[in-house]
Design a protein around this nucleic acid. Structure first.
Ligand code: ZN
Ligand code: ZN
Length: 146
DNA sequence: CTGAACGTCATA
DNA sequence: TATGACGTTCAG
């Protein structure tokens, strides 16, 4: 069996149809909010990320803050850009909802087929808790008159 | 380090 | 508004 291996799924990611390419290119992220705290884990007993990496600014986009949650120059918090991130880092599947119980992905949904580019979990496995992120308010998200 | 997945943005 | 795409984050 000295074969297979192929791309180890690495190239697969970069593999796609050169349809448009471009758009949303790396180098633009207008946004500026206010420092806000939202998420909060009781305990927060996890490994500590290494201190800063280097005083060099990785020209990731331009210079302004990144989009999701990047940067980490503090040994206290893992990463808190304090901008457009209200909920703090990413959440994880609850583990006990229907989809969370799924064992393997269906392999037919777009997420399964487009997993390379989509980078998302099978729709049949998407935790319902993570599905509804906005608001989490008891009100209906869509407007009655649309 | 790699794989997997979440979160936000852009576009249709 | 919904979907796709991308970067980032998290865990093993
Ligand atoms: Zn699927
Ligand atoms: Zn769940």
């Amino acid at each position: 069996m000295g074969l297979s291996h192929s791309q180890s799924m690495a190239e697969r990611y970069l593999l796609s149809n050169p349809s448009h390419m471009m758009s949303r290119f790396p180098g633009l992220h207008p946004r500026a909010g206010s420092p806000l705290t939202g998420y909060g884990v009781p305990g927060d007993t996890s490994s500590l990320r290494p201190p800063f990496t280097s005083p060099l600014l990785p020209d990731r986009k331009s210079g302004i803050s990144q989009s999701p949650l990047t940067s980490l120059a503090n040994g206290s918090d893992l990463d808190v850009r304090g901008d457009l991130n209200n909920s703090r880092k990413k959440r994880k599947a609850c583990g006990h909802c229907g989809p969370c119980q799924r064992k393997e992905n269906c392999g037919s949904c777009m997420n399964c087929i487009n997993r390379a580019k989509g980078k998302q979990i099978c729709i049949h496995r998407k935790c319902e808790v993570l599905k509804k992120k906005p608001g989490t308010s008891p009100y209906l998200p869509p407007t009655d008159s649309a």
